[in-house]
C-alpha cells in the first residue's frame, strides 16, 4: 500500500538531470521504472523517487550488430515486438510470456527488473545466456556486461540503465528454458535457461544459467566447458546435468529444499539440452 515515507516524485527532463538528482539524494532516492518493486520493497529510508518516464528510454530498436531494448520497455511491449520475435527464434519472447501475470507484465520494465535483480527472476538468466550488455549512465555513457553489472550492484545504488543490448549473431542459436513453479502464476523453485549453437553433430556454443537456487541465476561455465566442442551424446548431456546439479549453491527456503533443488537442476538441465538437440530434428 502507500509508501508514507515518500515525499517527492521527480520527473527529470534529461538523463543527466536524473543522475544529478540521484547524486544529490544518495540512498534516499530510487529510480522509478514501472514502479512495482518500489511499491513492494522500498525501505522507509527512501523519500524521493526519480521517474525515468519521458526520457525516451522505451522501445525495441535494431541496428546491424545489436538489438537494443530500452530500459523503460515493459515486458508486454517486448513480447509484442516483431524484432524480438525474430531474434534467436523468439527465445526471449517465450521466456517473457511465462513471467508473472499479464497484469504485472503490462507494468514491469526491463530496467526495473535489472535494478531489483530478484533472485527468482526468469528474465535475467535469459539475458545472461544471450550475453546481454547494458548501456548505462552514471555521469557518462558506458556499456557493461550484464554479469559484471550483477556482480557489482548494490541494492538501491545502481546507475541509470538506458538499454539492454543483445548481440546479433545469436540468430542460429536455439534456446530452451524451464521455470519450475508450484502453480501457473508463481516464481520458480528453480530455473534453468540454455542457449546453444549446434552443428555437425557437435555443440558449437553452449550457455547455461541456473537460478532460483534460491540465489540469482548464474552462468555455469564449468558445465558449458564440458560440452563445447564435443559431439552431442545423450551420455554427455546426462553427465553435464549431473555436474550442474552437484555444484549448485542450493539452499532450503520456504519454497523447496536444497536437495530437491539439486534434483530439479539435474532433471531440468538434461531436458533443456535435449529439447535444444531435438528441436533441430525438424
Amino acid at each position: 500500500m502507500a509508501l508514507h515515507h515518500v515525499r517527492d516524485v521527480i520527473r527529470p527532463l534529461t538523463l543527466e538531470e536524473a543522475w544529478q538528482r540521484k547524486l544529490e539524494h544518495g540512498p534516499a532516492a530510487r529510480f522509478l521504472g514501472g514502479g512495482i518493486d518500489v511499491v513492494l520493497y522500498a525501505p522507509p529510508t527512501v523519500s524521493t523517487l526519480i521517474d525515468l518516464e519521458g526520457l525516451d528510454l522505451s522501445g525495441v530498436r535494431e541496428d546491424a550488430s545489436w538489438i537494443s531494448i530500452g530500459a523503460m520497455t515493459t515486458m508486454t511491449e517486448a513480447i509484442e515486438s516483431a524484432t524480438l520475435g525474430r531474434y534467436a527464434s523468439g527465445f526471449l519472447v517465450r521466456v517473457l510470456k511465462a513471467v508473472a501475470s499479464p497484469l504485472q507484465r503490462n507494468l514491469a520494465t526491463f530496467g526495473g527488473t535489472l535494478g531489483s535483480a530478484h533472485p527468482w527472476s526468469d528474465v535475467i538468466p535469459a539475458l545472461l545466456v544471450l550475453e546481454a550488455e547494458l548501456a548505462i549512465y552514471d555521469g557518462s555513457e558506458r556499456t557493461v556486461a550484464l554479469g559484471t553489472y550483477l556482480d557489482e550492484r548494490k541494492a538501491g545504488e545502481s546507475p541509470v540503465i538506458r538499454a539492454i543490448r543483445l548481440p546479433k549473431g545469436s540468430e542460429s542459436a536455439r534456446g530452451a528454458f524451464a521455470s519450475f513453479t508450484r502453480t501457473g502464476f508463481d516464481v520458480p523453485l528453480l530455473n534453468v535457461t540454455c542457449l546453444a549453437v549446434v552443428g555437425e553433430g557437435a555443440w558449437k556454443d553452449v550457455r547455461i544459467a541456473i537460478g532460483g537456487t534460491p540465489g540469482l541465476a548464474k552462468r555455469r561455465r564449468d558445465v558449458e566447458e564440458e560440452l563445447v566442442g564435443r559431439p552431442i551424446r545423450v551420455e554427455g548431456i546426462a553427465a553435464a546435468a549431473r555436474s550442474a546439479a552437484d555444484a549448485i549453491d542450493a539452499r532450503d527456503d520456504v519454497r523447496a529444499s536444497a536437495g530437491y533443488r539439486r534434483r530439479l537442476a539435474r532433471a531440468l538441465v538434461e531436458r533443456c539440452l535435449l529439447e535444444i538437440v531435438e528441436g533441430g530434428a525438424e
Partner: peptide, 25 residues
Amino acid sequence: TGDCGACAVLMNGRAVNSCLVLAAK
C-alpha cells in the same frame, strides 16, 4: 501486493494491478 488482481484497472488501455501503480506514475 499485486498477487490477486482484484484491483485491476485499465491504464492507458492495459490491464494493471492498481495497487502496484504509484499515483504519480
